[in-house]
Computed example of a mutant assay.
Amino acid sequence: MTTAVRLTADQETGVAVVTLDRPGRLNAIDLTMRDELRQVWRELRFDDSVRAVVLTGAGERAFCTGLDRDTAVAQPGSPYMADDPLLRVGPKSNDLWKPVIAAVRGMACGGAFYLLGECDFLVADTTASFFDPHTSYGMVSAYESVLMALRMPYGEAARMMLMGTAERISARRAHDIGLVSELTGPGEALAAATACAAVLAGAPPAGVQGTVRALWSAREPALHAGFAQAPHLIALGNLPGERQEELFAGRRGTFRTR
């Protein structure tokens, strides 16, 4: 059976690696990957042999490029009951309080921030870049903006979310502003993140998990407030799907990296 997510675990170190495995689609998230991620996070809650987790993407081109645009998402007719397919795709949303470290190589954009926003810290190699295309395609970046505003200086988050496809944040800049905690050479982010995870897995798990929960609790009030506004802002601000597709089809490949 073909799967969109790979899970490997090292029983000796207590580290599991979760890999987004759709490199041909730049690890974009379809509903199969979404459902498999939810299942993996929930499985890891019950596996006491796993004490730390690394999240990464397959291939060299992208960590994740968000929701697969070919994914059809059914929506209720009422604007009061909008469904966001990625809202509960991350580890914290699935009540996993073991530390999760992201290892980023290549592009991370759009819906990838649902995942990165719920990792405890990020390790990236020099090929990594970060951007959010929503505004360029007539869409409101709501949940992504809330998550990134809690991970970056406000001005940096605002610039990234508002500039759309015109600009990307380089790995170096992401490290300078604190979004990325460690910068590695090309192809070395996974090994560096795994080494950090092994240290965490070697400590008494109750203390580590309690610290993860305490750190997240510092963000929760702002997160809940922002998420409460998100559905209404999306309903008010998103262009119709046909117009979004026109903008996407007419996109230009030029951008500035800073």
Rank of each mutant, 00 (worst) to 15 (best):
V50P: 08
R51C: 05
R51H: 02
A52P: 02
V53P: 01
V54G: 09
V54A: 15
T56H: 11
G57P: 03
G57F: 03
G57T: 10
G59D: 15
G59N: 06
E60G: 08
E60S: 08
A62I: 12
F63Y: 09
C64M: 11
G66P: 01
G66K: 03
G66S: 15
D68L: 14
D68M: 12
R69D: 11
D70A: 14
D70Y: 03
T71V: 09
T71K: 02
T71G: 00
A72Q: 04
A74T: 15
Q75A: 08
P76S: 10
G77N: 00
G77C: 05
S78Q: 07
S78P: 07
S78N: 14
P79A: 15
P79C: 15
Y80H: 07
Y80K: 05
Y80D: 09
M81L: 08
D83F: 13
D83Q: 06
D84P: 00
P85I: 06
L86V: 09
L86Y: 05
L87A: 06
L87S: 05
R88W: 05
R88A: 12
R88N: 10
R88F: 01
P91V: 03
P91I: 00
D95P: 00
D95C: 05
D95K: 00
L96V: 03
L96K: 13
L96D: 11
